[in-house]
């Protein structure tokens, strides 16, 4: 006969009496604390997934080492006398690290929804900008940490970045990280499969990076036009300008100017954050999963 609630003879694990020392009261939510919680969680998840640690920094390093080895002899950046591919590609690889981290972090939006975690966040008494801020802060800080590790490798290798440039460049890279994590968040929010996000990454995000001046400078007019309408071009250019602060002669010809790069980059970052907050207000099919 099937067991029922009535005929269970004993409890196997005791449940203690509820303490009366804790008052039953309402709560006052703190948007900043909620954002911190979500951002901190991204770090915990990152360090518990070794393959993510390896993939996020290992792949760009492999790209940098092998592509540079292959192209080193046949490349000199236009308008410079001695910037070879190893050096030219280094800031581009840092941007790739930021982009990859943004992608992996925002994939968690899809996973959180699929695994059910997101629903507990959506019913918490927090504004949606807390959710966005937490995800973006977590993703951007992870990206920065990995970029710093890679930068340290580059400095050991002998990359000629001035000290002031390092400070200014990394500060600007944080803006780039927030912007790209925001872009990933926008793309991920309405998606219900990680496979779909990988498809977007392949046909949209990676080409965006390739056509940003990270891998090669604009070499012909039509390519220059395509790159000019790519916001990542200005992230990349702004990063180069600031990283070489005081050594601007090492910037390749055709790179957008510093002022326009900063202007477009800050605007892009602001738009991505705003759009992320807007899209997070939207309910998606995954919110009503059984």
């Amino acid at each position: 006969m099937a067991s029922t609630l009535h005929d269970t003879p004993e409890r196997n694990i005791p449940v203690q009496r509820i303490s009366t020392t804790t008052p039953m009261s309402g709560v006052t939510s703190h948007p900043g604390l909620a954002a911190w919680s979500l951002g901190y969680r991204e770090w915990l998840r990152f360090v518990r997934q070794r393959n993510r640690v390896i993939g996020a920094i290992g792949q760009p390093v492999i790209f940098w080492v092998f592509l540079s080895a292959g192209l080193q002899e046949s490349f000199t950046a236009a308008g410079t006398s001695d910037v070879q591919f190893l050096e030219y590609f280094f800031p581009g690889t840092m941007m790739l690290i930021v982009l990859f981290t943004a992608i992996f972090t925002t994939i968690s939006v899809i996973e959180d929804r699929r695994e059910g975690f997101m629903q507990s966040v959506l019913v918490a008494p927090i504004p949606r900008f807390s959710l966005v801020a937490g995800k973006l802060a977590g993703g951007a800080s992870l990206a920065m940490a990995q970029a710093v590790v890679f930068l340290a490798l580059g400095l050991i290798w002998g990359m000629p970045f001035p000290a002031l440039g390092l400070l200014a460049g990394m500060a600007f890279l944080l803006i780039c990280a927030v912007a790209l994590t925001g872009l990933g968040f926008i793309l991920a929010w309405r998606m219900d499969s990680v496979q779909g996000f990988h498809a977007v990454m392949s046909v949209f995000l990676i080409p965006m990076w390739l056509l940003s001046g990270a891998f090669f400078p604009a070499s012909n007019p039509w390519l220059a036009w395509v790159m000019a309408v790519n916001p990542m071009t200005y992230l990349m250019a702004g990063f180069r300008w600031l990283l070489y602060l005081g050594s601007e002669e090492r910037i390749a010809a055709g790179t957008p100017g510093l002022a326009v790069s900063l202007l477009v980059s800050f605007a892009f970052c602001a738009v991505m954050f705003w759009a992320s907050c807007r899209i997070a207000q939207a309910r998606v099919r995954g919110d009503v999963r059984s």
Binding site: R45, G116, S120, S290
Partner: peptide
């Protein structure tokens, strides 16, 4: 939001983070 402060919600599908 005011309602959410007063609600405890336990979902059918798991909402804990297994990691």
């Amino acid at each position: 939001v005011e309602v959410r402060k007063r609600l405890g919600v336990v979902f059918q599908s798991p909402s804990v983070d297994a990691k």
